[in-house]
Amino acid sequence: MEVSMTTNRNFLVLATRNHPLYDTLKGLDVEFYDLESHAPFEEKWSHYRECDLVLDFTVISPDKKLELLKHLNIQFDFPIVSDLTTYWGELFIEKVSGLRGAVSFNFPSPTNCYEYYAIDERTKDGLEDFFKMLNVEGLRVDCPGIGFTYPRVISMIINEAYFALEDRLARPKDIDTAMKFGVNYPLGPFEWAKKIGHKNILCLLEELYKVTGDPRYRPSQKLRLEANLI
């Protein structure tokens, strides 16, 4: 990803290596913390006097994520924004008062445009400057829901493609061809899954299943297999 390196704002960025933007974020003109080499709950960030946004790009279990966000909320008076692509964002926003926004970078977009949520204009303005640094477009939405909209819809399409594979309906390349040339999808579901990462899709489906209790979100065994192979 081509990025614009400078900004007038101060961003504190926390990330884990399994985030797709990890390398890009590390190269930005920001205070960067790799949370795998820094123990997140022991770190003292109180020496940050000036910061516009604290941006969390960790990809960890939902319980740990909530714990981390609560910890950041105690440590900082600055607005916190978290990548909540595979989480129940609506709940996190309710539970953590300092969490002022959410982004959805964990599901790469074929158009480089990402949904985001911002409670207030200060967070929105900060995020828009951050998107400029990243050279991506942001699309403000009304609510992060569970996994925003694009991640949720594409996960269900990909899950169905894996179910179809389980049923021996067709080969992956035929399924990809069918969706690209029959309904003009920009990518076939298997190509898409590769870009997003099977683990991410599985995490989101499991979260949807856990939150809603609806069996429609049951992940395909083949998808589960792919997610566990890597």
Partner: peptide
């Protein structure tokens, strides 16, 4: 562009696109 598939409800597109 050809997609070969077995005889199953909705074939490929009408099944995978449902969601």
């Amino acid at each position: 562009e050809v997609a070969i598939c077995n005889d199953s409800p909705g074939f490929i597109v009408n099944r995978v696109a449902r969601n």
